[in-house]
């Protein structure tokens, strides 16, 4: 299941895809007059799945989706779904009837009976807010034409957690910001730049480390703003982030060119020589290579090749690839080989 395929959104060569890796939109929807999953009896949960399956059989768009009953697939495959961002980690911890629709190209998926009856999500490569919104609205319509959603004029779409009520929409942008991280101006930058109701999460690496350069920017507020307003606000932030990151890269290269080249080519050297590559170190090296690629210092490796590794180098994917259960150390050993192979690099003896 999946492990040998690559999700379409990772193949994006969109403009600035080295800075904004992906755009994800998620809608929370519930069926009218059925209790929310956390409080619903099993009978109601089964009804949700039955209704969703009926919606699929009546729709040509949803026929492109495979259905999986989470309880009947293996543990490793469940974790693969998480590593591929098709379901949330919290989804696996629930013990009631759950299912998931997954589009064949893995751009969209629908979790059934997670926190809400439906969690519809779609991922696009690069910055693609409008495309993602159009796509998710179509998908929502496919369900809405068969089942009425729980909606109130006052509060909009009613969701299990009041923090999602209203539009029920959460947009997340995954950003790769190595130059801003290296210039150590991130905390202040985000504080200045974020309008109310937006949040940034990510690993802030220490000092000159590149391990923490991937950030998620998303809206937290879902009530009191229209979908388009939320979209516009994120578009505004995205443009600012891209601009500042580019500016920081220029500055770094002007003032500290040797040090940056050193970081990038050292990373290449480590990957060529590594026999054992822990996840966290790998992210740091990958980030350096992505920076090298973006500024033209690395020619033979493409951005999609690098983005693909973000998914395929995760522990479950590596175990799945070799169809065996491995210790953490084994995984790190196989990861070192896999990275070289995928990037067509020769091992240093």
């Amino acid at each position: 299941m999946f492990a040998d395929k690559i999700p379409k959104w990772l193949e994006s060569e969109a403009k600035n895809a080295d800075i904004i890796i992906s755009t994800r939109i998620r809608l929370a929807r519930n069926f009218d007059s059925i209790p929310f999953p956390n409080w619903a009896p099993h009978k109601s949960l089964r009804k949700v799945i039955r209704l969703a399956l009926k919606a699929r059989s009546d729709s040509t768009m949803l026929k492109e989706f495979d259905y999986f009953n989470i309880n009947s697939i293996s543990n490793i495959n469940r974790k693969i779904l998480v590593e591929r961002h098709l379901v949330s980690p919290a989804f696996l911890n629930l013990d009631h009837g759950r299912g998931v629709f997954i589009e064949k190209n893995e751009e969209s998926s629908v979790m059934l009976n997670e926190e809400d009856h439906l969690r519809i999500q779609t991922i696009c490569g690069g910055l693609a807010l409008t495309t993602a919104l159009i796509r998710i609205r179509k998908l929502e319509e496919e369900f809405n034409s068969i089942i009425r959603f729980s909606y109130s004029k006052k509060y909009g779409y009613l969701t299990s957690c009041p923090t999602n009520v209203g539009t029920g929409m959460r947009i997340s942008l995954f950003c790769h910001l190595p130059a801003l991280t290296l210039t150590e101006r991130l905390g202040g930058l985000f504080n200045d730049m974020l309008p109310a109701g937006m949040a940034v999460r990510g690993f802030f690496g220490e000092g000159s480390d590149l391990s923490g350069t991937i950030f998620q920017i998303s809206n937290q507020i879902t009530l009191g703003f229209t979908e388009n307003e939320i979209l516009d606000r994120l578009r505004f932030i995205a443009r600012k982030v891209v601009y500042r990151e580019k500016q920081a890269r220029e500055q770094l290269f002007k003032n500290q060119r040797i040090l940056i080249e050193d970081k990038i080519f050292r990373a290449l050297g480590i990957i060529q020589g590594a026999r054992h590559l822990p996840m966290f170190e790998f992210y740091s090296l990958l980030s350096a290579l992505k920076l090298g690629k973006a500024v033209g210092l690395i020619q033979k490796i493409s951005t999609p090749m690098l983005n693909k590794l973000i998914v395929t180098c995760q522990p479950m994917h590596i175990q799945r690839l070799h169809s065996k259960k491995m210790s953490r150390q084994d995984i790190d050993i196989y990861r070192a080989r896999l990275v070289r192979k995928e990037l067509n690099l020769k091992r240093i003896n």
Partner: peptide
């Protein structure tokens, strides 16, 4: 407190 609003607005 969370959203700064108690009213849903649509486009």
């Amino acid at each position: 407190r969370f959203h700064g609003s108690t009213k849903h607005i649509t486009d």
